[in-house]
Amino acid sequence: MLTKRIIPCLDIKDGRTVKGVNFENIRDAGDPVELAIRYCKEGADELVFLDITATNEKRKTLSELVSRIAQNINIPFTVGGGISSVEDVSVLLNSGADKVSVNTSAFKNPQLIADMAAQFGSQCVVLAIDTKFEDGDWYVYLNGGKVKTETKALDWAKEGVRLGAGEILLTSMNNDGTKAGFANDITKLISENVSVPVIASGGAGTMEHFKDAFMKGKADAALAASVFHFGEININHLKQVLRNSNIEIRL
């Protein structure tokens, strides 16, 4: 049986790990490579690095960081943040990233997903969707949660998969930073309606929340940042607890 995955996320700004609350209030959480190594040792199944200040000038810095990460860890990792062209993707994959996540740029230019899938394969295309529950439904937000669209998250997820996305990274803005649990309803809805794995993101506060994301949210993987960065939840301990709840977990 395939296991459920536990994925620490490292937000990167100017080469450091940071973590915002509700997409704001950035706090410093250390050197990304050191943290990445620590997570590998604790039993993380995969890592995600999001460059939250990615600009064209920073691209080279990011690819150097990616290369340093790839040299030092022995599990898969995804890199995202400000990636808008096949060339950007190519640089990151060649630096050693396993997957690349796209968000706003893919929404504005869906062909990017198709081009990435055609050139590098769907397995490395992660479609990141930031979503917020408003007026009775879950809508897609862009630009790190600053810009609302009229598109429903489920519709965009389906379209993204049709175009070639190999995974959906779904972040609920209502839940992100609250430590009140994942948005299991929208996670379940999307997971049951697309053929690719869905990573639940936003809201992890307790071990029970991860269990709920898998059992209630039907997530294939659960992503969190601050509970891991600040040592509130130890990954190995979390995985023991999940396995004791009869969830398939790698230990």
């Binding site: 395939l2 995969e46 397995q123 690719v196």
Partner: peptide
């Protein structure tokens, strides 16, 4: 079951020196 399979799964019925030191039902990515 999703396709592609993405993640960690068990390997078993191991029959080669390639797996020396690797346990039955160890996980691979």
């Amino acid at each position: 079951l999703k396709v592609p399979q993405i993640g960690w799964n068990k390997i078993f019925n191991l029959k080669s020196d390639l797996f020396k030191g690797i346990k039955e039902k160890d996980y691979m990515y």
